[in-house]
Design a protein around this nucleic acid. Structure first.
Length: 707
DNA sequence: GTTTACGCATCCCCG
DNA sequence: ATGCGTAAAC
């Protein structure tokens, strides 16, 4: 074997076959933890080693981050630069292609992308201008409208079908909603806007109608690879069909039992359609699991065996030894949180790093109680799957100003910004926008219009700012954003006076980020396609050890030594939204399967017997139906007695007596510090240079005494 | 006539 | 925490 291909030795025979089958259509069914990412990475490296030029390879993944990481790893396997492999999501690649080919269907190269809340705002605006808001009976809210519209597109259903099946309460408004949606599509087309769905829809339209484009794209990308194929929708399936038409060199990887995005139109049946679209498809299954121990896999297999559809594979492992998954029945959420925190501290004392532990839950808000408990005990954590930075109001305000300067026809942003200014409400904003629309000079000088509203001082300032920003070529993006911030800061302090300090950091982070970009257009497109994590998250990433809290959806593809799944009660997991629908309930079961298969060595399942429901207070909850389906022999119930086991008590006692004020100590997360005060037998106050004064519970903290 | 301030219900998962 | 309607303030 050639030396540069050493990395192939790491693979098992099925994986090796995947890597070496480079030509023709290939379908890989890859179970959880079967080394799918490694196989994909090696396949890319192998292609390049065979002399395929990196830019001929296209890798489609679920997030852009995943694509970047895989490309990087392929490069390091070969020690050849592979960065010219094009990788991204369907949305980002469609966007890229549409910048070139969009003109064929009437879009200029500088079209604007609407993110989810932009789309909602537009629907809201159109709803008002159509006079639909004044109806007596409740008209769907903008959030719901956006969801319905997206379902139509992604599931290729009619409005009638979606309404009668999922929103029968709005059937009375069928005609109004239909009219609104037509307006919505027209508006987007007229103003060169695309929402997320349009990116796929329009790229597909180009491919469908222009054989020449299919030909060119086939030449540009000779090898296609698609990850997470079970979570693609039919539009994405069709896009692949056309992009691979010329050469048929297309490989897709997926796992039908891990399909968890049906709610947004994904259809795992794409996997089974694939061999029908591409004749002579080779099918390879990866069934050996390298991640989890046998007891954890047994549980996972039991969960999935209860599914209505029987899946195609059964996972096995060579790691036969291991502890049975543990179930804990907590009185309430407080006890659940306490339990989780206790176990986590035990684990860290045994040397398991915090970064090797995760707590998973169905919905972002299920972890609220736990977050408070973790903060109390100074256990650092990062939460995934919550609100994204870009969705917060202040960031949207800020970016809207930049958007106006790039595209003065972006009346959505105009509306948003105008409403922020002193003395302008919905009526005045509408008046100003109407004047702007009527002006042909708009592109060059909106300030002539604005000067008609001379009584509005802040508006005048805004006009000056725009004039500044439009001096093309003279300012870098960074300078533009700094100028915008100078204008926006006082408004910002007025509108968000309660917590503007916290929010300020987001803006600073954004301005810092902008230095990586050449143009405002590029910056904005990137932000729309790939929401940035908050500044805080980034910091914790490289500095400290941290615990992961995550929704199951955001945990896809990841793994930890120990995994806790919390809030396992009916109505939460499975979610109450899915309980009356068999299809959706099946998806919840797969979601539970995904959660379980994230664990390598240890798995805890936590069932609170009461949960807090807003408005009703604490209510009794039924344990999740998924737990009841599992043979009890596959799990161990955690008992109270064990919690009070002597070893832990002794450990606590030992530490208690040791400290007095003035002692120098070392904490696993905060580093060295000095004891200031002993509060009682369990609590001491320590000053850490890195953190400041901190109260520690000795029972849960491992403090090393330095002198 | 408009804007703004305040109290009220609602809130899943995501590119 | 956000989005809505209503009532007070400009």
């Amino acid at each position: 074997m050639r030396r540069e291909l050493e990395f192939l030795k790491e693979l098992n025979s099925a994986q090796l076959e995947v890597v070496k089958s480079v030509e023709g259509p290939l379908l890989v069914i890859a179970g959880a933890g079967s080394g799918k990412t490694r196989t994909l990475t090696c396949r890319m490296a192998y292609l390049v080693a065979q002399g395929v030029s990196p830019q001929k390879i296209l890798l489609l993944t679920f997030t852009r981050k995943a694509a970047r990481e895989m490309v990087e790893r392929a490069g390091s396997l070969l020690k050849i630069d592979c960065s010219r492999i094009m990788g991204g999501t369907f949305h980002s690649v469609s966007q890229y292609m549409l910048r070139f080919y969009g003109h064929l269907i009437g879009y200029p190269a500088n079209f604007t992308i609407l993110d989810r809340s932009d789309a909602e705002d537009l629907l809201h605006l159109l709803r008002n201008s159509l006079g639909l808001a004044e109806k007596k009976k409740r008209f769907p809210r903008k959030n719901t409208l956006a969801t319905i519209h997206s379902k139509l597109i992604n599931q290729k259903k009619s409005l009638e079908e979606v309404l009668s099946k999922e929103y029968p309460q709005f059937l009375d408004y069928f005609e109004e909603i239909e009219r609104l949606f037509i307006e919505y599509r027209n508006y987007k087309k007229e103003h060169y806007l695309m929402d997320y769905d349009d990116l796929l829809l329009n790229w597909l339209e180009v491919l469908k109608n222009f054989p020449q484009v299919r030909e060119e794209v086939g030449q540009r990308f000779e090898f296609l690879m698609v990850d997470e194929y079970q979570d693609t929708n039919s539009l994405q399936g069709e896009i692949i069909k056309y992009m691979a038409e010329r050469h048929q060199n297309v490989m897709v990887v997926g796992d039908d039992s891990q399909s968890i995005y049906g709610f947004r139109g994904a259809d795992y049946r794409n996997i089974f359609e694939f061999p029908k679209i591409f004749k002579n498809t080779k099918i390879i299954k990866l069934e050996e699991n390298y991640r989890s121990t046998q007891p954890i896999l047994d549980l996972a297999n039991a969960v999935i065996s209860n599914a209505r559809i029987k899946y195609t594979k059964v996972l096995y492992t060579k790691k036969k030894e291991g502890e049975k998954p543990i179930v804990f029945y907590a009185r309430d959420e407080a006890e659940s949180s306490k339990f989780v925190a206790d176990r986590i501290l035990e684990l860290t004392e045994k040397g398991i790093k915090l970064s090797q532990i995760a707590v998973l839950f169905r919905s972002a808000f299920h972890s609220f109680d736990l977050e408070v408990e973790l903060a109390k005990r100074d256990i650092p954590f990062v939460k995934f799957g919550g609100m994204k930075l870009l969705e917060s109001a202040h960031v949207k305000d800020f970016l809207s100003i930049l958007k106006i300067s790039t595209n003065p026809l972006d009346f959505l942003s105009w509306n948003r910004v105008l409403l922020l200014l002193e003395g302008i409400g919905p009526r005045t904003a509408e008046k100003i926008i109407n004047k702007l629309k009527g002006s042909t000079q708009l592109l060059f000088d909106p300030s002539t219009i604005i000067s008609q509203f001379s009584s509005l001082k802040e508006l005048q300032k805004f006009a000056l700012l725009l004039k500044e920003l439009q001096k093309q070529g003279e300012k870098t993006l960074f300078e533009k954003l700094s100028a915008i911030w100078e204008f926006y800061e006082p408004i910002f302090q007025r509108v968000y006076y309660e917590d503007y300090h916290r929010r300020e950091k987001d803006i600073e982070g954004l301005i810092a980020l902008s230095q990586k970009y050449e143009s405002a257009e590029e910056f904005l497109a990137d932000l729309a396609l790939e929401p940035v994590e908050t500044d805080e998250v980034e910091k914790k990433f490289d500095k400290e050890e941290y615990l992961t809290l995550s929704t199951v959806h955001s945990a896809k593809g990841l793994e930890w030594h120990t995994v806790f799944v919390i809030s396992l009660v009916d109505g939460r997991f499975p979610s109450s939204y899915s309980i009356n629908n068999e299809e959706e309930l099946e998806e919840e079961r797969r979601l539970f399967y995904v959660a379980i298969t994230r664990a390598r060595e240890r798995l805890y399942l936590i069932v609170p017997t009461t949960v807090y429901v807003p408005g009703e207070g604490k209510v009794l909850a039924k344990p999740s139906r998924f737990l009841k389906e599992i043979p009890p022999s596959l799990m161990k119930v955690y008992s109270e007695e064990k919690k009070e086991s002597p070893s832990i008590k002794e450990g606590a006692k030992e530490t208690q007596a040791e400290f007095k004020p003035g002692d120098l100590v070392k904490h696993p997360h905060f580093g060295e510090g000095e004891v200031i005060e002993v509060l009682d037998s369990e609590k001491i106050k320590v000053f850490f240079p890195r953190k400041g004064p901190t109260i520690l519970h000795l029972k849960y903290t491992h403090l090393e005494k330095l002198m």
